[in-house]
Design a protein around this nucleic acid. Structure first.
Lengths: 151, 151
DNA sequence: ATGTATATTCGGAAAATATCGAATATGTCA
DNA sequence: TGACATATTCGATATTTTCCGAATATACAT
């Protein structure tokens, strides 16, 4: 089953095209688009068939997505089989981006401390401020979304 | 002049370490950290010396940063020399991230349209919603920051 | 126009990465 | 424990990316 249709192929490639420039390996990016389209969790054999990649590549890509929190594994009781599905709490991914913002802000502040030029110190502090503001805006947005969902 | 100090080296590498996983080539990432620390715009020869890279690499990296809007070039009247400096409107970079959010949201909606499964349609629309919300939150934050700056 | 200083592009070498099939490890059941 | 099913890792290969120095192009001044 599940020979991927033309339109789905396109969708998968479109999604991949967006993520690849941001450092996500092509296969992982395609897998992400693929998982979005799967109504239920799928196993490595099916991934391998549908995406026409080896099972080892499928395994590597799946665990990479897991690391990014873009996908989750579901272990099946009573068998070693693992199913992968797109992560439902999609917000996690944005949280990831937030971590970069925060880490960057912290580095900037640290750099400001160790700089001897007043101008540079000011610049780095300003940049840090923007990052923190961005992080806060994101967090607030996520909180609002969560409230809406549960409320 | 301007042999880079130990601490500055560290700063540069720390910044680079953050950006490389997001698809920024090492040399460009290091150049970015370096430019943050320079009080004034610098030319390719100096970059090449300080970062210990060839001038061609410096040229490529600088123009890549320019593309990312992380750096700007300043042409010097009366000479062919080009100076590079870190982009002052740092918000640009976040705007860049926003473009990914928006592009992704649009792809998701398009995918939702062409999907025949109700469940998938709903999932893709939900994901798109989060993306749009994130984009809006970012834009609002940037507006607020701009107002604060000019006000 | 020509010469000079500089940036950019080119071609090849080196390094990193992705991918595969085979080998290995791991979990599950009897 | 042994047998089986499945995931993961390993080693080799192919591909891609990065980097350099040399060659070329470009802008400016005389």
């Amino acid at each position: 089953m599940s020979i991927i249709e033309e339109q789905q192929q396109h969708f998968i490639d479109d999604i991949a095209r967006l993520f690849v420039p941001w450092g996500v390996p092509l296969t992982a990016a395609r897998l992400y688009g693929y998982l979005m389209l799967m109504p239920d969790a799928v196993d490595l054999d099916r991934i391998s068939d549908d995406l026409e990649i080896s099972k080892s590549s499928a395994s590597v890509a799946a665990r990479l997505l897991e690391q990014y929190t873009l996908a989750r594994r579901r272990s099946i009781r009573g068998t070693k089989r693992i199913l992968y599905e797109v992560s439902e709490n999609y917000e996690e991914m944005l949280g990831q981006q937030n971590r970069l913002l925060e880490a960057l802000a912290n580095q900037l502040l640290k750099g400001a401390e160790t700089s001897r030029s007043e101008k540079i110190q000011q610049r780095l502090r300003d940049m840090a401020e923007v990052n923190f503001a961005a992080r806060d805006a994101m967090n607030e947005m996520l909180r609002g979304l969560g409230a809406k969902r549960s409320g």
